[in-house]
Design a protein around this nucleic acid. Structure first.
Lengths: 194, 194, 194, 194
DNA sequence: TATGAATGAGGTTTCATTCAT
DNA sequence: AATGAATGAAACCTCATTCAT
């Protein structure tokens, strides 16, 4: 009666958006199917058409957002010969994603730090990330950066970035462009082959 | 007929231990006061003698564990003239704490990534950390490492460490001593003055 | 397998009836949502579909019963020229209501004497009563009874009636028709213009 | 350590005062032993030294306040030959009590309208009231007022008074001296023998 | 006498989920 | 596909009461 645009995926999308927003406001345990349904102008029962149950919904959300992130980072990117430039591009694209989609980012982090992240789920998210890792791997094979394992790489490069993004998003400290630049140069100084 | 092991703070302690363990098993939204109480062999009502409510309990736990961590890291440590050695000590002490008290560590991380971490709570946790930061600051003033802000420092040094610890704790990947050594050297290479 | 007598408002009605009955048996602090639900053959959660919370339920009940009372008293009544007769009619209709619906009456009284009767709620109940007061006002303007304020009127006429009804309902003393007649005549003797 | 005046009945008195005040603020079901204890600066366990249980406390309170009221009303009063004057004295003393001790009055009313007022309790309260009733009875025997039963008397005289006092205490309407005078004269007009 | 700590029972409310429509 | 009504289970929390001190 009110909602004339009831096409298939509109509702699913509205549910996803509401879920991400509410979960970041209230945390996993502060949010309920009923609240999400109300926020998305949808019946609770409708949610169960698109998702098996609450946990399934959260997992699907996580994987979807992670995929969205990778897509965003790699959009229109063709790695070139300058490995530092490639590396810098990836670095900043991460930042831009965190900056433009703070809710997505916060959700991913909150989920990844909760026991909901089962092994299978983590592995699938990891697989999405492979294209990015492939670029890194290329730089290593070219001898531009030190040969370290993917896990270490992840920790050394993206963990600091995440940490800064979280700090920025929390509002407790504002991160400026020159801060990022500084961090990037320090990381690069550590990683590049001498 | 009477519970013999119940002296004043025993109960509070049992509650804390149960809470940390269960939360890491089940997540914030998987535990309940009732479950914690049962696990700690205590009545649910007893928990409310020591904590105002569930949120208060979690906050108190967070701050307490954070303080425990700082105490552990700084125990018997007197910074010397060799800044790299000081730095290395702190780095490894962090790792040892994560390694020995994976539950404490996981709880801290899960809490810090949830909306429960209010500003006041974050600031208080931050204050506990000051003694460690003071050592870093000393190295900067001595010109041993690049002069960067505390937030950047935190991100560059401890975020990677945390990331590795999480990975290790998750069981998805085992971190070996040589991995740590490698990471340490890379970070130091980036941070040290040229 | 399915409860056959559950059409939309049946449940709400069953809840109301159970609530009024139990509250008069046990008092406001003796009933619980769970007891009402069980008595009404309904899930506790169902009650929260119809009422915001316990207090809201009691307020809605109060207003509804008060309206029912006014409807009962004024049913098929057209005030005539004989003011004493009009007055007597109202007087006895009150009594009949108290007599036929002792639970409704007791609930109204218990609620009106509790701190739950907020200002807004009292005013709304008062408004329901206006049609009755209008009749009294007519008698005053016609010079049949002394010109006193509505509040005094209320106190002089209906408070005694209530008191007798309470006594009667409590079973501690039985009020007979001749008692009522006597009370009515005394009140009228006091009120009528000389 | 703080409270040096711990004499026997001080604590009981503090408990009573807190109970009456809190119950009028929050209602019977809003108040708890714990709240009363805290308000009275006493341990919950202490309350059980003076009272058998919660219900016993409320009943004792009711009876005590009712006795206090009767004492107040009859203080220094010697009925004379002028029955109207006697009657007026009682009428106004009631009002003064309601006016000076609104909490006591509200408690009595709330209790009397709740199912806590068991038969035995009502009878005992009634017995306290006998001295006042005796005065009324004297006037009847002297032929000054119509010969009606005690219950009717109560209803006709004191119910209006209570109603006005409640209205006044609720703050919804202010009762002025001339209002009282008017009510008194009307009641007297109805009661006195022609 | 007085108490703080303790608790089982039970309070209100919300939960994830289902089902008839 | 979509839903509002319904619910048993369980959430958080408070209750009246007891007991060792």
């Amino acid at each position: 009666m009110v909602d004339m645009r009831s096409l298939d995926l509109d509702k699913r999308d509205a549910v996803c958006k509401s879920a991400v927003r509410l979960i970041n406001q209230l945390g996993f345990d502060g949010v309920s199917i009923a609240k999400i349904a109300k926020d998305a102008h949808v019946s609770p029962a409708t949610i169960y058409i698109y998702f098996e149950n609450k946990e399934d919904m959260l997992k699907q959300l996580y994987l979807q957002l992670k995929q969205d992130m990778v897509d965003f980072i790699l959009k229109d990117f063709k790695p070139g010969q300058d490995h530092k430039a490639n590396f810098k591009h990836l670095f900043y694209q991460h930042w831009f994603f965190f900056y433009q989609y703070p809710d997505s980012f916060a959700f991913i982090e909150q989920f990844a730090n909760s026991p909901l992240l089962t092994c299978s789920c983590a592995e699938m998210g990891f697989r999405f990330y492979q294209p990015i890792m492939a670029i890194i791997h290329g730089a290593q094979q070219a001898g531009a950066v030190k040969p370290i394992s993917q896990a270490l790489y992840n920790a050394l490069v993206f963990a600091p970035l995440l940490q800064l993004a979280k700090l920025h998003a929390s509002g407790r400290q504002s991160i400026q462009p020159q801060d990022l630049e500084q961090v990037f140069e320090i990381i690069w100084a550590g990683l590049k082959t001498d």
